[in-house]
Amino acid sequence: MELTFYVASAIAIIATIMVITNYNMIHALLYLVVSFLAVAVVFFTLGAPFMAALEVIIYAGAIVVLIIFVIMMLNLTNEDVQQERTWLRPKTWIGPALLSLVLLGELAYLVIAEDMPTINNQPVDARQVGLALYGPYLLGVQLCGMLLMAGIVGAYHLGRQKKKVVHRFLERSEI
């Protein structure tokens, strides 16, 4: 049983290294998805199926896919379609696909295996997570809200487009 944990962790580390060494953003993001999936399997083997599901749904599912869509949809011109074609060469997706396949095999094995194969032998289900978060750690959850607020207000301020007061001739020459 411990082997599944180590394989998943190795995949997580490999995928993350590929994320930070890739120059192409789309390649990096694909590996990032794999990294999240691997972390989800790690959670699963450790007996936290609820966390694993959250990891897949929120990180891999919502956030990264959103980032990929935004990058792909911004400034769509004919050149970008070509660009997209080059992005989706087998060379790009074969690495993440292979790693994901290994993870899928692991997951299938874990599901098929008869006893719940966890390293510490008491799985934590959604009910326990909810009771902990909205019981003793309620104030922590509220603090997370404050944290998100700080992040959003800051991102709003910093991400605002700067008004450039540049003469249009100068602006054209910049391009």
């Binding site: 750690y137 922590g140 700080a150 207000v153 301020h157």
Partner: peptide, 18 residues
């Protein structure tokens, strides 16, 4: 540890933009 880390992050995230 939970409140320690959350407090630290609230402080840090606010400071990034400040």
């Amino acid at each position: 540890f939970a409140s320690f880390f959350l407090g630290l992050e609230v402080l840090s995230v606010s400071l990034y933009s400040l």
